[in-house]
């Protein structure tokens, strides 16, 4: 998979690049609008991440141009602006998703994967991890062809964990993924623990190995080893 990141903040760009490299994605970086447009015109990308506040141009223009020339490329807007109007105009222009700074890299990763899955396979592709397979259209999960009945939150959690497999996920990022803006309601992270516990139990009941590793004080890691 090939990504393009148009972002003027070098430190943030490096982090994002590193994160995706571990995912075996090629993540190219353009530091300004000019370079970004140039690259878009030369190469083909599966997904473009655009900061709409660039020093030399409006990222929304880039979205517009990209949409016109390469409608099949996925677009995710990253912005420090949470302004609703921006969000709506960004999505109206055809961007697939909108993420407000600051965000968790794991969240970005999950969204990029969702966009690519939707774009490349019209959402039909099964997500497979070890013995687990997920049908994103049906919102259902199976372990060795046996259906696992999951609640909405457990399903979201599972997809998120698989999207960020082999990585340490912080409790905050999980909480924010599951509850969004309400995440600050979590007076403690017991809720996550409950969901994790239930999910693990349901998966293991159907014969899946224990993929979930708890990392003390930090969060969780979903991996086969």
């Amino acid at each position: 998979m090939k990504l393009l990141l148009i972002e003027d903040e070098k430190a943030l760009a490096t982090s994002i690049q590193n994160y995706f490299q571990r995912e075996n994605f090629i993540c190219e970086w353009a530091a300004d609008y000019e370079t970004g447009i140039e690259k878009v015109n030369i190469y083909r990308y599966d997904c473009v991440l655009i900061d709409i506040m660039l020093p030399d141009g409006d990222g929304l223009d880039a979205v517009r141009e990209l949409k016109k020339k390469f409608p099949e490329t996925g677009i995710i807007i990253i912005s420090a602006k949470n302004s609703l109007d921006d969000r709506i105009s960004g999505l109206n222009l055809g961007s697939d998703d909108y993420l407000t700074k600051p965000f968790h890299l794991s969240e970005l990763n999950a969204r990029v994967q969702a966009v690519i899955r939707r774009r490349n396979f019209q959402g039909n592709q099964q997500i497979v991890f070890g013995k687990i397979s997920i049908d994103p259209q049906e919102h259902s999960a199976t372990v060795a062809r046996q259906e696992v009945i999951l609640t909405r939150k457990e399903y979201d959690l599972l997809v998120y964990l698989i999207a960020n497999k082999n990585r340490v996920l912080t409790k905050e990022s999980i909480a924010e993924h599951l509850w969004g803006d309400d995440a600050d309601l979590m007076d403690n992270f017991d809720f996550i623990y409950t969901h994790i516990k239930n999910l693990r139990k349901k998966l293991m009941d159907k014969g899946a190995p224990d993929y979930l590793k708890s990392i003390y004080g930090v969060g969780y890691k979903f991996s086969e080893s």
């Binding site: 903040e9 430190a11 943030l12 982090s15 994002i16 590193n18 994160y19 571990r22 420090a80 407000t100 700074k101 600051p102 965000f103 968790h104 890299l105 794991s106 990585r167 340490v168 912080t170 990022s173 930090v218 969060g219």
Partner: peptide, 17 residues
């Protein structure tokens, strides 16, 4: 403040790995 925060959070997340 959002941008430096984004940098901090992304670096922390990188470090966790």
């Amino acid at each position: 403040i959002q941008t430096p925060l984004a940098v901090i959070l992304s670096k922390i997340e990188g470090l966790f790995q």
